[in-house]
């Protein structure tokens, strides 16, 4: 498992972002219990981060293999549409979950086969589903926002277990399950090996194709889960907008988490913190009361600042600075 020390940069960035928001909007940190569930801006961050956090879990693994999955937003739309259709037709929640997750898995396997077995560049391979997926979703919903009224399914988006909103529990659980899966088995090590040097890995007998396929499959599953949460949240499937551009936020979360787009070492926990940083910014901007024209600028400035501080060049400079200070401090 990732050592806490390795998460310092991400935790520090999250801390600073939260602190800044707290300065601008003092009420940000207040958490109360209302109608038997936790309530407050901080909780909103935890709930609203769910789709990006879930996508980031899968995206981390895909990026670790030197790949990228642009289709996750579209897969959310597809699985959301299927889920809404089934719920509207009165199917029980377990059936809906099973079908939607299977569909997400199929989408992931499709990407995985294109990348791992047909050797199509990941960005192109997943672009196919990114473009076509939304069309498929629209076919399923018939071009309308497919609404339903089913408290059991809506529970996924707006319910709470012992006061904790369900989306928070879902993304935490998914992060934990996938994290354990890759770190308690050798999957994580082998994925990293493939991402760093696929040729060398294949020469020591690592089944690189299978591993790559598996990461896209997991990414598809995560996207399916995310798709169901947003569908449950608004009690409807919006094929045009569900998950739109979220693939980019997920990639950003992974990058903020310190996983290189060149593949290799990864940390799911760090990616989740990355997602939290992005969502904290979103929520922070919303409650700041600034005009919306500033949203993207503020977000961009903060993210550039975080990435700059994490860049190897700056890290080296900071290292030099630290050494200097230490040396000065050592002098009597």
């Amino acid at each position: 498992m990732t050592r806490l020390r390795q998460l310092y940069p991400q935790l520090l960035a999250l801390g600073v972002v939260l602190l800044l928001i707290g300065l601008i909007s003092p009420g940000f940190f207040s958490v109360t219990v209302q109608n038997g569930r936790l309530y407050g801006s901080l909780i909103d961050v935890g709930v609203r981060v769910a789709p990006v956090a879930l996508l980031a879990v899968g995206m981390t693994l895909v990026i670790a293999t030197k790949g990228i999955d642009l289709s996750v937003g579209a897969v959310m739309a597809i699985t959301g549409a299927i889920a809404a259709t089934l719920v509207a037709d009165g199917h029980p929640v377990p059936v809906v979950l099973l079908v939607a997750l299977s569909l997400g898995l199929v989408c992931g396997l499709w990407n995985g086969v294109l990348v791992a077995f047909l050797d199509i560049q990941p960005i192109i391979a997943t672009l196919i589903l990114m473009v076509a997926g939304r069309g498929i979703a629209q076919l399923i919903t018939g071009g309308v926002i497919l609404t339903f009224n089913d408290p059991a399914f809506s529970f996924l988006g707006s319910g709470a277990v012992m006061g904790v909103p369900t989306p928070i529990l879902i993304w935490l659980a998914m992060g934990l399950v996938v994290g354990l899966l890759v770190r308690r088995t050798a999957l994580g090590l082998l994925i990293e090996a493939v991402g760093i040097n696929r040729r060398a890995s294949m020469l020591v007998g690592v089944r690189a194709r299978f591993l790559i396929l598996a990461t896209y499959a997991i990414s598809g599953l995560c996207a399916a889960m995310a798709g169901m949460i947003v569908t449950a949240d608004i009690h409807g499937a919006d094929a045009n907008n569900a998950g739109l551009w979220l693939e980019l936020d997920a990639i950003l979360a992974v990058v903020i988490g310190g996983t290189s787009l060149a593949g290799g070492r990864f940390s799911i926990t760090a990616s989740l913190i990355g997602a939290l940083i992005i969502q904290s910014l979103n929520t922070g901007i919303l409650i700041s009361g600034w005009p919306p024209e500033f949203n993207l600028i503020v977000k961009a400035v903060v993210i550039v600042a975080i990435l700059t501080l994490q860049s190897p060049a700056v890290a080296e400079e900071l290292g030099v600075l630290r050494d200097l200070l230490r040396r000065k401090g050592a002098k009597p």
Partner: peptide, 26 residues
């Protein structure tokens, strides 16, 4: 009192409204 973009979508409309409610005394 407050004006933010909800991108014409339900999801964003809901998210923005949540934050408005938090910011305006529940």
């Amino acid at each position: 009192a407050r004006s933010q973009t909800g991108d014409f979508t339900r999801t964003k409309g809901k998210e923005v409204m949540e934050s408005f409610i938090k910011a305006e005394n529940g």
